[in-house]
């Protein structure tokens, strides 16, 4: 449901670093709502990559509110991180108003992986 269904419940999403809050429907992903409502060249607080949970570009941390997530690559959000509120915005839908902050990780170099 890329555009959000016509009568679905919407919530307000506050993203740290964004000038205004955005609105996202319960059956819509937060990242796509952001893309529709914050247009380039306005700075987008969350990076847009694959939009399908694979690349990690849109990694965020939800600091307040209830939400659901869909399957995404475990390399970007481990189970422990998910329990702490980390998620990929392109796999994230709100169940209440949300507050979130960008949590993008740089590419993991081999040295990081040894540790």
């Amino acid at each position: 449901m890329p555009d959000g269904a016509m009568f679905s419940v919407t919530h307000s999403i506050q993203i740290k670093g964004a000038e205004t809050d955005i609105t996202c429907a319960e059956d819509q992903m937060v990242l796509m709502a952001m893309e529709q409502q914050i247009h380039v060249p306005s700075p987008r607080p969350v990076r847009v990559g694959c939009r399908r949970g694979g690349c990690g570009a849109c990694r965020v941390k939800v600091t307040k509110g209830d939400y659901t997530t869909q399957k995404s690559s475990r390399v970007h959000v481990t189970e422990e991180e998910a329990a702490e509120g980390y998620a990929l915005a392109c796999r994230l839908s709100p169940l209440s108003d949300l507050e979130l902050e960008p949590a993008f990780l740089d590419p993991r170099r081999p040295a990081d992986q040894d540790g």
Binding site: G49, C50, R51, R52, G54, S72, S73
Partner: peptide, 28 residues
């Protein structure tokens, strides 16, 4: 509603004509 990255366009390198897009797991 397939996630599109860029295109239709052309690569100067190889001169190929192209669209980049993503599969449902985020593989380009």
């Amino acid at each position: 509603d397939i996630s599109r990255d860029i295109g239709p366009t052309r690569h100067g390198i190889t001169r190929g004509q192209t669209i980049y897009f993503f599969d449902p797991s985020g593989n380009r």
